[in-house]
Amino acid sequence: MNDSLPLLLRAARGESVERPPVWMMRQAGRYMKVYRDLRDRHPGFRERSENPDLSYEISMQPFNAFKPDGVILFSDILTPLPGMGINFDIVESKGPIIQNPIKSTQQLKELRTLTPQESMPFVGEVLGRLKESVGNQAAVLGFVGAPWTLAAYVVEGKSSKNYAVIKAMAFQEPELLHQLLNHFAESIAIYLRYQIDSGAQVVQMFDSWAGQLSPIDYDTFAAPYQQKVIELVKETHPNTPIILYISGSAGVLERMANTGVDIISLDWTVDMKEGCARLPQNVGIQGNVDPGLLFGTPKAIRARIVDTVMKAKGRRHILNLGHGILPGTPEENAKVFFEAGKNVNELIKSIS
Score class of each variant (00 low, 15 high):
D69V: 09
A303K: 15
I72W: 04
T269H: 03
P241C: 04
S214Y: 00
S59M: 12
P241G: 07
D76I: 10
F337W: 12
A65F: 12
F74K: 06
K311Y: 06
T220Q: 14
R36A: 11
S214E: 06
E186F: 13
L244S: 03
A257I: 05
N282V: 13
T240D: 02
M120C: 08
W23E: 08
T236N: 11
E186K: 13
N87G: 08
L141A: 00
V202W: 00
A303I: 04
E156I: 00
N320I: 08
E346W: 09
L130V: 08
H183R: 14
S352M: 14
V252N: 03
G251M: 02
A168C: 07
V71H: 04
L150H: 05
N258V: 05
K161L: 12
T297S: 15
G324L: 11
L347N: 08
G157N: 07
M25E: 11
S352C: 13
G275T: 06
V134Q: 03
G251A: 10
S208C: 02
V126Y: 10
P238Y: 02
L150S: 05
Q106K: 10
F171P: 09
I190E: 15
G322P: 02
R41L: 15
L244P: 04
V270W: 01
L213S: 03
P298A: 14
K161M: 12
A164N: 07
G284I: 01
V17W: 09
R304G: 08
P101V: 02
S16T: 15
L108D: 01
P280H: 05
N333W: 12
N345I: 11
A170W: 09
S187N: 13
A200E: 11
S160Y: 03
P101S: 11
G145R: 04
S208W: 01
G292R: 11
L347M: 09
